[in-house]
Each structure stands twice: as C-alpha cells, then as structure tokens.
C-alpha cells in the first residue's frame, strides 16, 4: 500500500515536473511497473524488431506492441479513454493532425527523450509534446519484371494512362496517416481532378500504406501509387523485383511523431522506453530499415536517396488536422470504400 502511494506520488511529481530524460529513480520505478504498451503505426516487422531487441536486453521492462493504422490507433485510444480503460503508454503514428488534437485535450504530455539535443531541428519540438521518431516519403513504384523501365510511369500524370487500368494499387487513407498526408500534398499540387481520373482507372484498394508492396512484388498488380519509402526499399534490398518512381513534381514527406500519454498506466517505463526509441541503437536500426531519423550520427544504407536530393512536398500539422476528414470522405465517394 505504502509502495503504491510512493509510486503514485512519484508519478505525479514526474508528470508535473518539466520534461527531462529519465534518471535512476525513474528507472527503478519503471522496473517496478515492469512493462510498457506501445501503440505504433510503424510497419509491424520493424516495430516488432524494436520491441524484441528491447525485450532481449532484460531491463526488467517488457515492451508490448500494439500495431495498427494511425486512424485505428487514434480511435481505439479515444474509445478506451471513454470507457475509462488505460492500456497504452506511448503512441507513435503518422498523423500529425491527431497529435495536435491530443495535445489540445492534454491527452499527451511533454517529454524530451534523452540524446535528442543534437537532433535535426525538424525532428524536435520546442514544447516537447512529441518528437519525430522517423520520416519517410510516399513513393510510387512498379514491378520491374512486368514493366520495363521505358514503359514505367515517370510522373504522377503517367498513372492516368489507360494502359494501367485495373493494374494499379492505391492505399486507403482512412487507416493510414502516411497515405492521407501524401494525398493532401498531391491534391494541393494537382487538385481533386487527379484522383477523380485515378478512380476511373479502377485501382485495387488496400488498407495500409505498406499493403501494396507484396501484391506488386508478386505481380498481382503492376504499379503502386505510393507506399512508404522504407517498406519499398527494404523489399528491394531483399531482392523483390521493385523500383521506385521519383516524379519531378516531388514526393510527400511524412514525419511521424512519438509521444507519452498523460494517463499512461506505466508512466516511468513509458519514459525509459521512449529514451530507448531515440537511442543511437534504435536510430541506427531505423536508418538500416531505410527510414530517415533526426540523429545526425547514423549511417544510412545504400539505395536510400538523401533527403536533400529529393524535391519534397510537405504540409504542417494544422493543415493535416483541417483536411484529414474531408480528404477521407472524398476518397470514399470516389473509390467506393
């Protein structure tokens, strides 16, 4: 009982204290909590790899992964909160707009992970409500066994060529923050007319950003309108017959924040785990998976274009928040699901 009270006081102290990296006291309390649940939209094999590596360290804290799309994670957390259920400690998705909502309602709490002082300024925030864990671009791509380089699309407009009818895969924005983000960028650039024409091409719809990659690798469809760059490049490294399309108009940059929940059931473990996420080790792991990170000291693998070499399209969190819902609604109208 006394232990509980002390742990509680400690938690309150931590919550009200300015956000600083975990110290020894936090570590001891975290071990007592023993576990941390991570709501993450990072593709499952990478997210699971991170958790597995963490668990192998035997820190006394077990990482429990709950992987789902950004939208589903957001709804799930709010639904659980409504029922007074608090399971999640740390959240990581690709929809910055959601984080603005969560911040406004104080559902997430500021925390500055250890070792982020020298990070690229685009990856950190002043108020520390979140820190960008990773970034990627939404890449169109094609199957190299079925499509020659000559025939392959070079621009966004090339996807509207009638020869691709029925051979395209488009990811659904409702569940993927990555895809929503990319769509808003493309609409900003080309208008809704682009998607109206794309819908007439009868693309197959998959429910996650990464879902198009295995299907095109198998040759079930020939070209994809956009997947997460890291999934694509990793599969190419594994030898799948795939190649990205880099249109002159540019690629949408998606930065994915990570935060600690205010009502995390394991507040100390949440902070310790967040420190691990931003550690040199994990940052390098993410880089090895073809993700861009804020840490300037990581080595990126061969085949990943440097961000400065790409013509980037980007939108802010406020715009994402504003256009999120209308974009999804319009997509359903156009594509039927």
């Amino acid at each position: 009982m006394l232990k509980g009270i002390i742990a509680g006081l400690l938690a309150v102290a931590l919550l009200s204290a300015p956000a600083f990296a975990a110290d020894d006291a936090t570590m001891r309390a975290a071990k007592k909590e023993g576990k941390i649940t991570w709501y993450s939209s990072l593709t499952i094999n990478i997210a699971q790899d991170i958790c597995n590596r963490y668990n192998k360290k035997k820190t006394g804290i077990k990482c429990i992964l709950h992987r789902d799309g950004s939208g589903k994670l957001y709804r799930r957390y709010l639904q659980e909160r409504k029922g007074g259920i608090y399971v999640a400690d740390v959240v990581h998705t690709s929809n910055l707009g959601h984080f603005l909502n969560l911040k406004a309602k104080k559902i997430i709490t500021p925390y500055k992970p250890a070792g982020t002082d020298n990070f690229n300024e685009k990856f950190v925030t002043k108020d520390n409500y979140w820190t960008i864990l990773r970034a990627g671009v939404l890449m169109p791509f094609y199957n190299t066994k079925k499509v020659s380089e000559k025939d392959a699309p070079k621009t966004y407009a090339d996807f509207l060529d009638p020869k691709w009818k029925g051979k395209i895969i488009q990811s659904h924005p409702s569940y993927s923050g990555f895809v929503t983000n990319g769509m808003i960028n493309i609409v900003n650039r080309f208008g809704w007319g682009y998607y109206e024409k794309l819908a007439k091409q009868k693309p197959k719809i998959v429910q996650s950003a990464a879902g198009s990659v295995p299907l095109i690798a198998r040759g079930e469809a020939l070209i994809g309108t956009g997947t997460t760059s890291y999934t694509l490049l990793k599969q190419m490294q594994k030898g799948e017959p795939l190649k990205p399309v880099i249109p002159p108009a540019g690629l949408a940059l998606v930065t994915s924040p990570n935060s600690v929940f205010t009502k995390a059931p394991n507040p100390n473990a949440a902070r310790v785990f967040t420190d691990y996420l931003f550690s040199q080790e994990t940052m390098q792991l993410l880089a090895d998976y073809f993700l861009y990170v804020g840490n300037p000291n990581v080595k990126y693998p061969k085949g990943l274009p440097a961000l400065k070499d790409i013509n980037l399209m980007a939108i802010g969190g406020d715009e994402l928040k504003k256009k999120n819902k209308p974009t999804r609604a319009k997509f359903k109208k156009l594509f039927g699901v």
Binding site: S70, P203, I205, G336
Partner: peptide, 22 residues
C-alpha cells in the same frame, strides 16, 4: 471486396467502428 472497391454491410459496419471519428 474491399480491394475491389466495394463494401458490404459487414465491412461498412466495421469501417464505421474503426474510423478515427466516433
């Protein structure tokens, strides 16, 4: 049927339930 761009009542029902809106 979702890849085919077609919801049925059950998949539509589930889409409502997992939508980020309540």
């Amino acid at each position: 049927s979702i890849p085919a761009g077609q919801h049925t009542m059950t998949t539509q029902l589930r889409a409502f339930m997992v939508s980020e809106d309540d």
